[in-house]
């Protein structure tokens, strides 16, 4: 019987700039089903954080309820975490972020957690452009409650029991663009080569970064006729382009055909180099991005990669002109300046 993963690691594991090997970013042993797409995404997050030289204590993991929402337990054991209520991760994230803007907020949700019970909270956190990564592990079903169709299940997709879904799917990527998300990407749990740079860019983005990642539920939605199974997704993925992520000041050495390259500079000076494959699509134009998504959908394809990005994103703190310092660094007097100050404010409002 094994529920134990040895702590022995490859003796030649490389160290990142902080001197950590990748295991410093791991979480506890996953209890998800063997082969669940979510686990593969967790591994990609571990890798991305290691590569980005992130200090784990500078990350807060937030989630709702679902197999996907359990995931934060399985990466970054040395980070902060809050496993909230079903569909309510955005409000917790908003509160935490307003209190301490210095952390990286990494939200993990599911298609049920986001597109059903949590839809109300989701749309509002998007339109507020909260500075966070919002990752949906999208398996087209409620995995944790044994595989009921979710609101992202495609019309016509067949469940494991054989019933066919009658309703149109909610397209989270185009919805997010519609609502003003400033960074929208789509990917597949089985494609780490694409997913890891996308995660890195999302973490570096200032503002709301939404990643809709198709993540097969190997137990309840990996059957023939499902449009979220490993083989179906692999057959129907259309990659918009490949990308490299380079931290600040480091040169990108990968060479691509001229003319199809876009270098996107992030707010901290790091660079995303985008190598466009899809034609008739401009990742900086929301209409063009939405068109591309819809166009692919009509062809029965799933568009993946970085779909849309607003380089001039203004996140919530900037909009609200909040204090630069996190609340925990303010003195008691700054936080609670006393009844005299309150009286002045009240007077100003009269």
């Amino acid at each position: 019987m094994t529920y134990v993963r040895s702590t022995f690691r490859h003796p030649a594991l490389p160290k990142n700039d902080l001197g950590y090997t990748v295991d410093y970013y791991e979480g506890s042993l996953s209890t998800l089903c063997a082969g669940c797409g979510h686990d593969s995404i967790n591994a990609a997050i571990v890798e991305a954080c290691w590569e980005l030289n992130i200090e784990p204590h500078k990350v807060a993991k937030l989630s709702g309820i679902g197999c996907s929402s359990k995931s934060p337990a399985y990466f970054l054991s040395n980070s902060h975490g809050f496993n909230s209520v079903h569909g309510r991760m955005p409000s917790v994230a908003t509160g935490a972020n307003l209190a301490n803007r210095d952390l990286i907020y990494f939200g993990v949700s599911g298609d049920g957690d986001t597109a059903s019970i949590g839809m109300g909270q989701f749309v509002h956190v998007v339109r507020r452009n909260l500075n966070m990564v919002y990752l949906v592990m999208n398996n087209g079903c409620y995995g944790l409650t044994k595989g009921q169709d979710s609101a992202t299940a495609d019309a016509g997709s067949k469940s494991k029991a054989g019933s066919v879904n009658l309703f149109e799917a909610i397209d989270l990527a185009s919805l997010a663009i519609e609502l003003g998300a400033t960074f929208v990407g789509q990917s597949f749990s089985g494609d780490k080569e694409q997913l890891i740079p996308l995660l890195k860019a999302a973490m570096k983005h200032k503002g709301f970064a939404m990643l809709n990642v198709i993540s097969p539920c190997v137990t309840f939605n990996n059957n023939p006729g499902s449009t979220k199974s490993y083989d179906y997704v692999r057959e129907h993925v259309e990659i918009t382009g490949t990308m490299d992520f380079a931290p600040m000041m480091k040169e990108i050495t990968a060479s691509y055909e001229a003319g199809s390259i876009n270098d996107l500079t992030m707010h901290d000076g790091s660079i995303i180099r985008l190598h466009k494959l899809a034609k008739d699509w401009d990742p900086f134009d929301p209409n063009s991005a939405m068109n591309a998504i819809h166009h692919a959908k009509r062809k029965g394809e799933i568009l993946t990669g970085l779909l849309y990005m607003d380089q001039d994103s203004i996140e919530l703190h900037e909009m609200l002109k909040t204090n630069e310092k996190p609340l925990n660094l303010l003195s008691k007097f700054q936080l609670c300046p006393g009844s005299e100050t309150l009286a002045k404010i009240n007077a100003g409002l009269r």
Partner: peptide, 14 residues
């Protein structure tokens, strides 16, 4: 089915 589960779980990156 190339789910990567084995790759991710392997303690010693084999």
């Amino acid at each position: 089915i190339e789910c990567d589960a084995c790759v991710d779980i392997c303690p010693t990156a084999c």
